[in-house]
Design a protein around this nucleic acid. Sequence first.
DNA 1: GAATGCTGTTACCGTTAAGTAACCCCTTTT
DNA 2: AAAAGGGGTTACTTAACGGTAACAGCATTC
Lengths: 201, 201
Amino acid sequence: MEDSTRVATRLPAARRRRQLLGVALRVFADRGFHDASMNDIAVEAGVTKPVLYQHFTSKRELFTELLTDVGRDLQDTITKAVASADGPREMVQKGFAAYFAYVDRHRDAFKLFYGGSLARDDEFADLVNQTERTIAGLVGSMIEIEGLSSSQRQALGHGIVGMIEGASIHWLKSNSDADPATLAHQLADLAWRGLRGVTPD
Amino acid sequence: MEDSTRVATRLPAARRRRQLLGVALRVFADRGFHDASMNDIAVEAGVTKPVLYQHFTSKRELFTELLTDVGRDLQDTITKAVASADGPREMVQKGFAAYFAYVDRHRDAFKLFYGGSLARDDEFADLVNQTERTIAGLVGSMIEIEGLSSSQRQALGHGIVGMIEGASIHWLKSNSDADPATLAHQLADLAWRGLRGVTPD
DNA sequence: GAATGCTGTTACCGTTAAGTAACCCCTTTT
DNA sequence: AAAAGGGGTTACTTAACGGTAACAGCATTC
């Protein structure tokens, strides 16, 4: 009728739900689980809190759904990239490239996964750990060193995964305009040849 | 010998302060910054909240002091270990060994540093980053690959630091009874020779 | 043996945020 | 045109927690 400076675009449920997931991913990635309030998310989505609660029964459930989605995506991406390779050297190269490409294209997803307060929460941690464990297992099986037990391979695999994560975090943090593909290549090279360098390429 | 972390009686200020720092480290390491309340810390120390506030002006200040102490300790430990080595191969070995020994002997300190919600907070993150950057710089200078820019060395250094962190976190998480010295040796070996491996020992 | 000065406690305030009840309004159906 | 139903809002409850004022015992000092 009169004033109404508010343009409350009404959306069908399914569409609103998807929008909320997208906004929540962004806000959680930006502020972390604790520091992002349900009200923040609702406001950024242009609605109010109860709308959020019509689609998600709790803050934890919303966060859990995001974590699950991201974990599945990332795991699939890496697994497929590695599976498409021919030989261990190429597996390493393609795996690293796929990881950095993922981080580059899904920064919020990556920040959600590794930026924050999940280590403290068993439920959240499990979701992340499962993905990490899968990738670490993949890597562990690529280590061409004889006489390692499977738990030793797993431990070293986690080391390599940590290496990728550490480099990714540093890359995002330093706002480097370095090409992710280049970084992936150099890191894969380092992982394959070691600090010692040398070069039977 | 007395257990300085669990005394219920009246203590002189300096002693109480030290006790509170010890308890706070344990509680923060266990529950993280957000999920640990000042009341929790006070109760675990056998006193009440205002006593805590007689020694620390705020929760942030308390946490900051702990982070600073831990960062200094860790940085010194690694720097000295590396400085005592003779040649790059031994630097890697001694650096890794020192890191894992530190994690083993100061689990709470390590958890405080890498377990939690510091990435989100600029002040906390800076304290951790400084230590990480120093170590990453040390490592970066050990990479025997020609033609790398200093920022590239830094990036790869962060990768190696991430590798150590990732392996440490996995080691603590999996409650492995593996000897930290052995793990350090294997990881240093992996870092030095790369995934390509060649010869176990 | 009163005064002084710590160490410590009880009881409170203010804020922030999760979650909910009750209601509104617009569109579609009959 | 009246009913029905779903999308949305206002306003509230509850609970946790950081931080503080005021006060209480117990030494030591004078």
